Simulated scan of single mutants.
Amino acid sequence: MLQTESKTMNLEEFLDWYPDGYGRFELYDGVVVEMQPTGTHEQVAGEFGTELAIEIRRLKLPYFIPRQCIIKPIDSDKSGYIPDVAVLDWNALKDEPMWKKRSLITKGETAKLVIEVVSTNWQDDYLLKLGEYEKLGIPEYWIVDYLALGGRRYIGNPKQPTISVYQMVEGEYMVTQFKGEERIQSAIFPELNLTAEQIFKIGE
């Protein structure tokens, strides 16, 4: 992550500033940060995108995976996050006031699933974004920690590569973790046949 602007912005200013077709940026409490993912990070995210797109098409679900979208926290106009993978509901887009103009998501029911692939700024995924996505009411949030970078209180001790699947239950996230040959369990994609190890091999 690299801070790119010295002045702070609100979300509207950030969206006006955002360079078209160049780079990947997020807004954290008014501060513009450039995301600089590694090639392996992008491979892992891309594999999830591919597998989920296959499921969407196979089951003829009313979902799609955008190339990029920005998720706005429910109680801030100074932050906006770009998930590594997002599965959006076609039918919910009609209620998103800024979608056609900005590809901006403001309602939790629009995003059926959000995936973040952990980088060195792992606290953002396990603390900041987890809390914001929960408040929005996004049904599922996956944290893919293929390098076991997260704190021991999140992935255990000794640390090992872990996929944490947070599912919304009565207004709060409950987590199930998957390692090794365990098949990832998802309420959004219940027939997904993908193990944690299949993903982690990509990151080796």
Rank of each mutant, 00 (worst) to 15 (best):
residue 101 K to M: 02
residue 77 D to P: 00
residue 164 S to F: 03
residue 202 I to G: 03
residue 178 F to A: 09
residue 123 Q to R: 13
residue 47 E to W: 15
residue 116 E to D: 04
residue 123 Q to A: 06
residue 192 L to S: 00
residue 173 Y to L: 02
residue 56 I to F: 03
residue 154 Y to M: 03
residue 114 V to R: 14
residue 190 P to H: 05
residue 55 E to C: 04
residue 174 M to K: 12
residue 202 I to N: 07
residue 97 P to D: 15
residue 162 T to E: 13
residue 169 V to G: 00
residue 143 I to C: 03
residue 98 M to Q: 13
residue 26 E to T: 02
residue 134 E to W: 15
residue 104 L to W: 07
residue 81 Y to E: 05
residue 53 A to S: 13
residue 87 V to S: 04
residue 136 L to D: 12
residue 184 I to K: 00
residue 110 T to A: 04
residue 89 D to G: 00
residue 190 P to R: 00
residue 5 E to G: 03
residue 1 M to H: 12
residue 93 L to R: 01
residue 165 V to H: 09
residue 15 L to G: 03
residue 135 K to P: 03
residue 195 T to N: 03
residue 59 L to M: 08
residue 113 L to R: 02
residue 77 D to M: 00
residue 150 G to F: 11
residue 169 V to L: 04
residue 183 R to Q: 01
residue 183 R to K: 12
residue 155 I to P: 14
residue 93 L to D: 14
residue 134 E to I: 13
residue 88 L to T: 06
residue 154 Y to T: 06
residue 33 V to Q: 02
residue 164 S to V: 11
residue 41 H to D: 06
residue 180 G to D: 15
residue 16 D to P: 00
residue 6 S to F: 11
residue 105 I to G: 08
residue 111 A to H: 06
residue 154 Y to K: 13
residue 99 W to E: 11
residue 63 Y to R: 07
residue 168 M to I: 01
residue 195 T to Q: 01
residue 120 T to F: 13
residue 139 P to K: 06
residue 60 K to L: 14
residue 162 T to F: 07
residue 204 E to L: 09
residue 86 A to T: 06
residue 190 P to A: 05
residue 14 F to L: 09
residue 180 G to M: 10
residue 75 D to C: 10
residue 54 I to G: 01
residue 172 E to L: 13
residue 150 G to C: 09
residue 131 G to E: 12
residue 38 T to W: 11
residue 105 I to T: 07
residue 109 E to M: 05
residue 58 R to A: 07
residue 20 D to K: 05
residue 138 I to F: 15
residue 11 L to G: 07
residue 89 D to Q: 10
residue 48 F to N: 10
residue 108 G to T: 06
residue 141 Y to L: 07
residue 23 G to A: 06
residue 50 T to P: 09
residue 171 G to V: 02
residue 120 T to E: 15
residue 96 E to T: 07
residue 33 V to W: 12
residue 72 K to P: 08
residue 86 A to G: 09
residue 29 D to F: 10
residue 163 I to R: 03
residue 62 P to Y: 08
residue 155 I to R: 09
residue 94 K to P: 04
residue 87 V to W: 09
residue 130 L to H: 14
residue 204 E to T: 08
residue 69 C to D: 14
residue 82 I to N: 09
residue 118 V to S: 10
residue 187 A to T: 01
residue 188 I to P: 00
residue 127 L to G: 09
residue 70 I to E: 10
residue 190 P to I: 13
residue 10 N to E: 01
residue 104 L to E: 07
residue 176 T to I: 05
residue 94 K to N: 03
residue 20 D to A: 05
residue 138 I to L: 11
residue 43 Q to K: 13
residue 12 E to H: 13
residue 95 D to N: 14
